[in-house]
Nucleic acid binder design. Structure first.
Length: 338
DNA sequence: AAAGGGACCTGGCTGC
DNA sequence: TGCAGCCAGGTCCCTT
């Protein structure tokens, strides 16, 4: 389930493998994958053909490739992607590119100028670094670059989508997301709040806005218009680290308590990012087809009945927002009344 | 107006 | 053995 660390792992891969390449043509193999494109597949193809990718940018769980012609001006167009629950972006290189020295599957990434190197193999055991399956099952959209490489959008459950769209200026003049300095972001992402790893995030304003909400704290964590990037897995892990039950009311928590909760959420996502994210199965992989390694570091998520790493009490599972929530019954006391 | 709930999806798993 | 039903959950949209 791609949340911020998984999407960021994909973005980092795209920054290395796709930026600088030019789209020759696009094949849309499933209309649902482009359902948010007003003009459908034809419009997506028309807007991408001939465009060069200038940056890979992410805010929360959304990522986009900016499409440039003039390097000096802010990009006016972008290919927006959301992975939904099972979306993957896989870079496919023809054999001749491998022979020409492009890093093979599982090889360490080289960082472009100004970006921290991401070595996806150093922190994960070789058994979890898999080659890209040669199957085209669930292949929804295929971008073909003019150098013979391809970018595949694969999505089993079709909750994800691609969309070519114009950009709009950010409200605060800061960069639209991580991966580019341009103060723009795709129009459909304008309502998505900055995420907890965004340098331009105003933490104290976030705490104020959260306290002004009259809702449960887990709902607030999952509200992408309040703070983005957090999904069900990292919400539960953050609440466990903060020793808070998800049904605690935001308006009744001290600001300092909320502040440390957000710090815990940022920390758990940084920890996950360092090992390539969380993979339970083949549904989440990076652009090379490699699985993340954080699943073994989860404290409570998916661990019903297993001991809390802090106190040993068996992890509890509850229904919440039509989802499963996992918590420690001893470390995370349920509030008395709703 | 803010908050909550359901729909959208498919494949793997469980239980009868 | 086969099949029905459940479960996973991010986001949009509708209702309250």
């Amino acid at each position: 389930m791609p949340e911020l660390p998984e999407v960021e792992t994909v973005r980092a891969g795209l920054a290395v493998r796709v930026v600088g390449r030019t789209v020759a043509d696009v094949d849309v193999l499933h209309p649902r994958a482009v359902r948010r494109q007003t003009g459908g597949a034809a419009e997506l193809v028309a807007r991408l053909r001939g465009r060069t990718v200038t940056a890979a940018v992410r805010r929360g769980k959304y990522l986009w490739l900016t499409l440039g012609t003039d390097a000096a001006a802010p990009p006016d167009e972008a290919l927006l992607a959301h992975l939904g629950m099972s979306g993957q972006l896989l870079v496919q290189e023809p054999d001749q590119r491998r022979a020409a020295g492009i890093p093979d599957l599982g090889a360490p990434f080289l960082a472009p100028p100004g970006e921290r190197p991401v070595d996806l193999t150093a922190t994960r055991p070789p058994t979890l670094v898999r080659t890209i399956p040669a199957t085209t099952a669930h292949l929804r959209v295929r971008l073909r670059f003019d150098d013979g490489g391809e970018l595949w959008f694969v999505d089993q459950r079709t909750f994800g989508h691609l969309m070519a769209t114009t950009t709009v200026p950010t409200e605060d003049g800061a960069p639209g997301g991580l991966g580019s300095d341009a103060p723009v972001l795709p129009g459909p992402v304008a309502h998505i709040a900055r995420d907890l790893l965004d340098p331009a995030l105003d933490r104290s304003a976030l705490v104020r806005r959260t306290r002004a909400r009259v809702t449960e704290v887990k709902r607030a964590l999952l509200d992408q218009s309040l703070v983005s990037g957090v999904g069900n897995i990292y919400a539960d892990e953050a609440l466990w680290r903060a020793r808070l039950h998800g049904t605690r009311r935001t308006d009744r928590l001290p600001g300092a308590r909320l502040g440390s909760l957000f710090d815990d959420a940022a920390a758990v996502m940084r920890d996950a990012l360092a090992v390539g994210g969380t993979s339970f199965d083949a549904l989440y992989v990076d652009v090379e087809g490699a699985a993340g390694y954080f699943a073994r570091s989860l404290a409570v998520y998916g661990r019903t009945g297993m001991p809390c790493p802090r106190c040993g009490a068996p992890v509890r599972r509850e229904q919440f927002m039509n989802r499963s929530s996992y918590s420690c019954p001893r470390c995370q006391r349920r509030p008395r009344a709703m």
